Simulated assay, not measured.
Amino acid sequence: MRPVEALHAARELELVELVTPEGEAHGRATVDVAHRQPGALHRAFSVLLLTADGRTLLQRRAAGKTRFPLRWANSCCGHPAPGEPVALAAARRLAEELGISDVPLSEVGVYLYRAEDPGTDRVEHEYDHVLVGLVSAELAVAPDSAEVAELRWVAASALREEIVAAPDAYAPWLHGVLSVVLDLS
């Protein structure tokens, strides 16, 4: 097994926290099991890094991802381990995926969704904590190629139109995550 494949295989064995629709923990499962049909509702997080002028950093998910590969998504996302604080897990994944540390994150809401990936037959059924970090566009980013195929900055206000025009180019949760953030203003 190649190192990238080994990394993704190891991530599929990590534990996630199963939750009720109200976000109450009631068990655990591996990432693999939680994302198989019909999908088990579990805790997740999505991070949007925003600049003062309203741009957000998007990542195009790596080809080796087991769910929605090569689709544009929010800056970073993942799953806290059972009992792990969401902000701590999000900071860990920012460092792992993008090489970014010391970005203060604020939780701004939750997005509950279910989406089936027709390409991999996997399911995302997540109680998704949405976090925002305010950063400079000159932020030094060092993406892990096993996680991220590409990065780009885009005006958050234009992103909704892009998603509507080409929904299959984007992760299905991105529109909802963006709505949580933009509905705050």
Rank of each mutant, 00 (worst) to 15 (best):
G99I: 00
V16Q: 01
P172S: 01
V148S: 12
A95D: 09
V110S: 00
V19Y: 00
V123G: 04
A52L: 08
P69Q: 12
V103L: 00
I100F: 10
V177I: 07
L105H: 08
L159W: 02
G39A: 05
A158E: 10
V164T: 09
A95Y: 05
L94S: 03
L182V: 09
L178T: 06
R60Q: 12
G78M: 05
S75L: 09
A115I: 04
G39H: 05
V135Y: 04
E96P: 02
I163G: 09
D53K: 03
E5K: 08
E150T: 06
L94F: 03
E150R: 13
L134R: 12
P21D: 07
S46R: 00
A10Q: 13
Q59T: 11
A155K: 11
W173E: 08
A169I: 01
V19C: 13
A73S: 13
L48S: 06
V31Q: 06
P104A: 15
A25N: 03
P21E: 05
V130M: 07
I100P: 04
G119S: 10
E107K: 04
R122H: 14
H26T: 03
E24Q: 14
Y127D: 05
V86I: 09
E150K: 08
G27E: 03
K65I: 02
E124C: 06
V4T: 03
P143H: 14
D144G: 04
Q37T: 12
K65A: 14
E162D: 10
D102R: 12
P172H: 04
P118M: 13
S46H: 04
V103N: 00
A81Q: 00
